[in-house]
Design a protein around this nucleic acid. Structure first.
Lengths: 356, 356
DNA sequence: ATTAGCACTCAGGGATAAAGAGTGCTAACA
DNA sequence: TGTTAGCACTCTTTATCCCTGAGTGCTAAT
């Protein structure tokens, strides 16, 4: 496997990514970095085809990279990914964009839209960071006759609420008992540790007031379920429709069944992972590039991009790397202890200032 | 304009809706309700074409209804819409479906998904009912060091919250003052009456603590803005992709810019309104059918369906009429005074039981 | 007023042919 | 031995032609 052949592979990949047309020997030979004739290129390409790195859509067409071709290119050949500082700043600004203070939730959301916009692909984020945060506050608030709101706040800045309608009004004593129980038993507990068992205990503890309270308990149970299941955000889906190599129907299917993505995103892995449509992925001719982000030691989510297989990886991968790194930085400063949680905001403010 | 011609127009519309193919004179003549020969039908169809009610995609094809053709059919000719009781019950059940108690918000949401599912179109609801409800509760909840949550609950069951990060912690006195002020000045106020002026007053009243409190005040201001702007729900978008007569790109554009729908939906009108792509609407070959729903005297939202122009109006319109009527009934029972707000729930429960 | 008959029009679907792009192979060359 | 020029060959793409069938409009007869 010689030097020149690899150079030709790189040229084919990049040319194909650029034009979308199968690329022929003549085109390659005319590139400045290739100093041999078309015939030689042809010989080498035939070789690369035998190795399964290139293929021809039909006999008399140029070559197109195969999945293995892309893999080799991405892993070994392409110029090492890096993101120019201006782009970094632009991204920073997009990430921290928000009307009021930034929360983790908002951060994640900004990340999806930013990735989608910059890469012109669909961006996806699977966030299970709430699982790793701690319940910092539980409140039960009367909100009208026989109406109560259960409110639960986590250290990560998630706020969940549920309105519950009761058959009878609670006495202030009942309210206090319930409220206290929740505070004592839930506050400080990690969301990951919320268990059905705790809910059973709650039910048992309140058994005396069961008649009146069951909607409230159901509310708490639902909220805790909501918290434990991770959010899956998808954005920029429409970019996929402008992609002629992707099947529209398959794209629709993907959008309808986002949840199928979860499996792929939640796999444990490290660094950047690139999936192709070969065995794993839903849409033909597409690729999924994901990276985990972390909070302290834990990997708490993955984020990435779905696009056509014919994608400018050298450009897209740095974006993903940078965003995942940046999110890791930002949310890791927030300890899981609520006390220090304003640090995201402060960090963010400082950085924001320095950019202007 | 004779009787028979209208009958032929009806037949063309219904046949075209059924098959999607331009319909010819022979097909029409063979229908049991038409007792004349194909030649006669041809003459009549030529007439109808001159009147602008039918048109031919090309010279040697059958006829297709024009927009005016559809209009006439819908307004004057089609069999008067009505919904069989089983369907009514099915809809009732879909509307009241919820894990815990039903709120107006949930009701609206159920309405969109139900309409989308039953009509196999995209369903859209523009809800500005929050504007017509009353703020029933405002709370400021400490949620960690220098972190507070502003919580606002309306009589309609909307709950909004915002997390605010402060530069300093509030003293319990400051918290009490702020909290009391909000309760006294906002609770009982109709959302429609929330004004920038009130926010200015709030700012003025808190001027002593401005340094610390400004994020909180900003939070309140944002929440009140959120409440006043209506929600636009879209559901079943994917149904539009399966529609071969609609352009996928246009559908994508619609989904990306939902807000453009607002203008169309928020126009004041009464009864059922059917818009076609002629002058008003975004997508080619599509139609938008909407109806207002009310809360007491006020019209508080519109709901409807977006589908291909080739749509079984006689089937879809009754769904929309029924849903808008039903929603009107359900939310009108809820007075704008929080005291009586559980009535939706009770009504709902009763009805739910009687169906089973 | 209705109908049967007929000539006419036009989209859709092969079939065929020419054009163009790219290959593989062979033979010549450094 | 690696590289190159030349050439025949393959195969897609595009255009063209032709045929078929569906449906029409018109005319003349009922």
């Amino acid at each position: 496997m010689n030097e020149r052949k690899l150079k030709i592979l790189v040229a084919v990949v990049e040319e194909y990514v650029r034009t979308g047309e199968p690329v022929g020997s003549k085109t390659i030979a005319s590139l400045p970095e290739i100093n041999v004739s078309a015939a030689t290129v042809r010989n080498d390409m035939a070789m690369l085809e035998q190795l399964g790195l290139l293929e021809q859509p039909h006999t008399s067409a140029g070559r197109v990279p195969t999945i293995s071709g892309y893999r080799l290119y991405i892993e070994k050949l392409m110029s090492p990914p890096s993101l120019p500082i201006e782009e970094q700043q632009r991204l920073d600004e997009m990430l921290s964009r928000s009307s009021s203070g930034i929360t983790e939730e908002l951060l994640i959301q900004n990340a999806t839209t930013a990735l989608a916009e910059l890469t012109k692909c669909a961006a996806v984020v699977s966030d299970f960071s709430p699982k790793f945060s701690v319940i910092s506050k539980v409140e039960v608030i009367p909100a009208g006759k026989r109406v109560y709101v259960v409110l639960l706040i986590t250290s990560g800045g998630n706020i969940k609420n549920k309105m519950c309608r009761l058959e009878f009004d609670l006495t202030s004593e009942q309210l206090a008992v319930f409220s206290d129980y929740l505070s004592q038993h839930l506050e400080g507990v990690s969301v990951a540790d919320l268990s059905e068992e705790m809910m059973e205990n709650l039910t048992a503890a309140m058994s005396a007031y069961m008649m009146t309270m069951s909607p409230l308990i159901r509310g708490v149970r639902e909220i805790s379920r909501d918290l434990r299941q991770h959010a899956l955000l998808l954005s920029g889906e429409s970019n996929l429709f402008s992609c002629k190599e992707l099947d529209k129907m398959e794209v629709v299917r993907l959008i309808e069944r986002k949840d199928e993505l979860s499996k792929l995103l939640d796999d444990s892995f490290s660094g950047i992972k690139v999936l192709f449509s070969d065995n794993n992925f839903v849409i033909g001719n597409s690729s999924l590039i994901v990276s985990k982000y972390h909070k302290g030691q834990h990997s708490v989510g993955s984020l990435g991009v779905i696009g056509p297989m014919r994608l400018d990886y050298a450009k897209v991968i740095p974006y993903i790397e940078y965003v995942s790194q940046r999110i890791t930085d930002l949310i890791s400063e927030t300890d899981t202890i609520p006390e220090s949680q304003s640090s995201i905001f402060e960090k963010d403010k400082k950085e924001g200032d320095s950019h202007e």
